[in-house]
Computed example of a mutant assay.
Amino acid sequence: MKNVRRSVPSLGLIITLVGFPQISESIFTPVLPRLQMVFAVSANRAQLTMSSYFVAFAVGVLIWGQLADCFGRRPAMLAGIGVYLLGNVGLLVSGDFRFLLVSRLIQAFGASAGSVVTQTIMRESFSGVTGAKVFARTSAAMALAPALGPLIGGLLQTYWGFRSVFSGLITLSVIVGGYACCRLPETRQRVDQVSRISQMQVIKRLIGNPVVWVYGLLIGGINGVLFSYYAEAPFIFIRHFGFSVVQYGWSGLILAGASLLGAVLVNHLLTWWSPEQLISWGLLLSVMAAMMFVIVTYGEQPVLILISIFLTFLGLNIALPNALNRALVGYEDVMGSASGWFSLGYYLLVSGMTFGMSCLHNGVITTLPWYVMGLSVVMLVVYVKVVPRQVDVIDKDN
């Protein structure tokens, strides 16, 4: 079998590819109340455009991960972007809510290639402390992109109507597809033969590893908290506090600031602390801030609420890049398939958590902070109970 020298994609391209699915997830949030009115559906049904996105996304990461192993990273990525473009066109021409929902599923299925294939490229191109720092920077983009989504969606809706959001997504898909077509190298070492990988063996390896389960819970849980916030926040800030759509969009920069500061702290603190220690401290900060979130929400002070949200997501953004970097150590020989199955699991968890938030939606603004605090506590407890012990066992064996 012929081996070729692999090229490493630029950080700018990686950030673009990992960011466009995130924007697509959250750009809907400021238009949810508008979609509810235009299509004459309940708020809970309007929120299905968020939770259903992750179902199709979860299926997509599995399929694109396997296709990336079989045919290469570049073909899988370009095909995914093509499907993503098709879904965006469907959103633009949708005339009823069902067609809109189906188009949203197609969009999510295609966009998922940007997640799983890019993470596969990153894991095989960077390792060790360098890998942790690259994941920190791209994790900032993964959090920054959905934070910008509400602002972009709010501005487009305000000046050109809610369908301009879909036109904007079509433009984004064309730009990203052109960029990837011109600049994305093939990073898989063997490119001249279809890989024969036993998916059952990959599944058994993943299921039998408790650390993989815990990191899946963390990554899914952190993203579940993020997108539960995006599903519920418009009804809190726009409906309850009377924010305009654009004002709500600007509030997303709070999360952007948390993601950027988290990335800076991770890059700095990795010099002294291990990734496992950073995850523990990040989760602890998120729990404490979530408690503050609960308390200040009862006082109905928007400024204090936004501060508590910033601190909560700062802690989560310290934990997330380290969890992403450590999750599949030891699976380099089947990275595409392992990434696909692993991502399937945690995106199903994200979908379940986002759907859970839509089920709990009752117009009471304290529901979200209690939900965020509960999830943060669970993640911290499970992590400190399992992962440090597994690391100790590995150290003793070595």
Rank of each mutant, 00 (worst) to 15 (best):
L17F: 00
V41C: 07
L265P: 05
E124Q: 09
N267M: 09
F355G: 10
V384E: 09
D96A: 03
C359G: 11
W281C: 13
H268T: 13
I175Q: 04
N325C: 14
A323V: 05
V41S: 00
L265G: 12
L169M: 15
A145H: 09
I121K: 06
R183S: 13
A56Y: 04
V55R: 06
R239I: 04
Q107E: 12
L17Y: 00
V378W: 01
I236V: 09
R74A: 03
F57L: 11
L217H: 04
L172K: 06
V381W: 06
Y371W: 11
V393A: 13
V384S: 11
L91I: 10
S115K: 13
T118L: 04
V211R: 13
S103D: 06
V31W: 02
V212G: 02
D96W: 04
F293L: 08
I305F: 09
G345Y: 01
V381G: 08
L144E: 00
A289D: 08
L156G: 10
F135N: 12
W64F: 00
V384I: 15
S274Y: 00
P33C: 01
V350E: 01
A231E: 05
V165K: 11
E25A: 14
C359R: 14
T312I: 00
Y347A: 03
S115P: 09
V176C: 05
L314V: 02
G374Q: 07
L348Y: 10
V55N: 09
W272R: 15
V294P: 08
L260I: 08
N223W: 02
V129K: 09
F243L: 05
Y346Q: 11
L105A: 11
V191A: 12
L17P: 04
T271C: 06
V31H: 02
G345V: 13
S94Y: 02
P146Y: 06
K2S: 14
L349T: 14
I207F: 13
G299E: 12
V89N: 07
L380V: 02
R183A: 15
S343W: 00
I254R: 00
F342L: 10
P210H: 06
K2F: 02
R239H: 02
V8F: 10
A143C: 07
L269R: 09
V174A: 00
S7N: 12
I106K: 06
I106S: 07
L260K: 03
P275D: 00
E276G: 12
G19S: 14
V245F: 10
L85G: 13
L380G: 03
S52A: 15
S198N: 01
A263L: 02
R326I: 04
F71D: 07
V18C: 02
F342T: 02
P75N: 03
F54K: 02
G153C: 11
Y229M: 05
P150Q: 05
L144N: 07
V93Q: 09
A58C: 09
R5H: 12
V391T: 12
V225Y: 08
F310I: 04
